[in-house]
Design a protein around this nucleic acid. Structure first.
Lengths: 212, 212, 212, 212
DNA sequence: AATGAATGAGACTTCATTCAT
DNA sequence: CATGAATGAAGTCTCATTCAT
């Protein structure tokens, strides 16, 4: 595992760090709801403020711009997502087992965070270059980990045309379908079954015979 | 193959149908470039007009609203995409062969139209309900076809947890990674190799042994 | 009777005078309908063209500006109105009889032309100063005639506080209620009864005992 | 006297009710000046803002649309007008006396508010149906009162052809000449004399011998 | 630290008018 | 003489951001 690249620091008008954390939680939660509903560009800071129960002025004590708000949302989504997966493979030594665990964790996390992830996928490209790069770097480091896990976990298997890199891309991208086609999620029955099925597809794609 | 649902008709101020077609081509092309760059909401109709070489007023002789413009872009993307795949399986009887051809066609089409598709994926949810439904219906009919092809093409293979529906979803969704992570496309070498690798992954996911 | 002030001449692109007359009739008729419906400012020249069955370009061969169109409408309304009254008193010598005839003619004409008159009352002030003055001069000359008729027709009657001028104003203004409160017109029963009643009110206002 | 129908409530972005009242006074006053000058449709909200000393943005904190502004103007005109007359007849029992007072009050109010009333007469029909109806209902209730007063006040007088309703219409409409032909107002000498003369005309129309 | 009114730049859209065919 | 596509100026309205209280 590589060192995790730093998050961009967002300045606040308010000193009290605990308060900043608390208020930003409110703001991010409100922003997710609002951005999901209307899209980032059509959402207004007034919407966010109302939803968060904060006045416009107060909002701007914790966030410098509307874009900052989007960054906070994306940053938090990425952090939770990466974290959840890191914990899943922690202490697992067997390469094959590590891979299976990682795949399952990715699918699960994508399911759990599908609302935030929809925003990241659709709106992150609106961020300014620096924020976008900061986010991408963190995702890339994470994908590099997956690449390594895939590489180690598939050694000795049948030859294939796809690089470990592209396979890792498949593993991390396919489950975003939960975020991008939510009506499909709703149509597929209980979450656990959906997650199982998706894991099954991905392991097949990796040509791993999973323990029946 | 089912009957294709009708497109929504967009009214124009200009009567000459040929001219409308020509101008709308200009407009759609310009809009794709602009929307890709800034996102739909941040793009201005002035941008579109400038890029298309049309004055603001002229633009609005061929499109009633900014949203119409987005609809035209999405509509055209879907039309080209669906069409390309329909042609690929035309006249192919053997179920297995049909499936392989369909998969390859999907991957290829997603690669070719990745710029338009990026817009559809990110911005289509901003359309009004009627337009959105019109589009979705056409994609759904197409996915139904893929479901049937997948069902027929995988009969007799190993049992799997995923429904034909979810497999079809995987086939049609995974290649959108070309649109959503373009930097990955650029990193993977020549297009043909990328397409081959992606097809390989999908056939493995379907547990089809492809002809070496 | 004084000399009638000249109308403003509106230039046309087309030479054939008869054609100009015919087309302008179409245009005026269409404009009345459209202006009544939406008001002058909200009406578009396209509306007028469509209603008149003329293309935009053709329209502008007979009218130089939108304002010209309004002027034509007002001009025609005033002309018909004034004319109708002039004919009613023509050749009537007895002052009292002249007055009664004039009052009845005014009321009748206001009833008949109430649609056009609504436009004149509401929109004429939007004309440029020159057109407005040209119209007002013609109406003033007409009102002067009424003043004279009122003066002659009420001689020897009871003293009153109102000048002949103000009485003439009442005679010519009160019936515009037909144009400005059309729902009242509709509520008052058959036109003839309404006209009779209005005449009755005006003669009473003039303190003339009308021949029962 | 009947219950006065409710005004339409116009929403504001600003919470402080006192401030809303104050700013709207500014806005209405400015709007009257501007609308009178150019007509509602040709007037711009920039004009109104400049005249009111408010920025465009601020303006729209107190008014949601340009039409709202027109409604506020009309609403205020009607309110003042109706109120002024109600106060004039308050506590007057004798029917004849009530009628004379009412007539004088109508004339006076129409004179005082002639600027606003010009706008109501010319532009109110541009309001959306709901606003228009809200206004008309309030005026109709007022006219009903006048009808009752006229009916009671003329009992036992000479028979006439006009209904009490039409007489009431005359009483309330004729004085709008002050608004619609302002040059006449200016030509008729001091206001008091003009008001007296108009009252005289109306009482004659009602065939009431006024106390010399 | 919180509030919310004020600001003004800028977007979409309309439409009178022109002019090549 | 008729047509109708092109033009671009201008208007309404929104909203991120600021700042006095």
């Amino acid at each position: 595992m590589q060192a995790v690249p730093a998050r961009r620091r967002i300045a606040a008008n308010v000193k009290d760090a605990a308060l900043v954390g608390e208020r930003r939680d409110q703001i991010v939660e409100a922003a997710i709801a609002v951005f999901r509903d209307k899209g980032f560009a059509a959402a207004t800071m007034r919407d966010v403020g109302l939803r968060a129960g904060l006045s416009q002025g107060t909002l701007y004590n914790y966030v410098r711009t509307k874009e900052d708000t989007l960054y906070l949302v994306c940053d938090r989504a990425v952090a939770h997502y990466v974290d959840q997966i890191a914990r899943a493979v922690e202490g697992v030594a067997d390469p094959r087992e590590r891979l299976v665990r990682a795949v399952r964790a990715v699918v699960r996390a994508q399911y759990d965070h599908r609302h935030n992830i929809a925003i990241v996928l659709r709106e992150a490209h609106l961020l300014d270059a620096r924020s976008r790069e900061a986010l991408r770097r963190r995702v890339d480091v994470f994908i590099d980990d997956i690449v390594a896990i895939v590489g180690a976990g598939t050694t000795g298997g049948p030859r294939r045309r796809a690089s470990a890199r592209l396979l890792a891309e498949a593993v991390t991208y396919l489950p975003t379908v939960f975020a991008m086609r939510p009506w499909r999620v709703r149509a597929e029955g209980p979450p656990d079954k959906l997650v199982d099925a998706m894991v099954d597809i991905l392991l097949a794609a990796l040509r791993i015979e999973q323990p029946a």
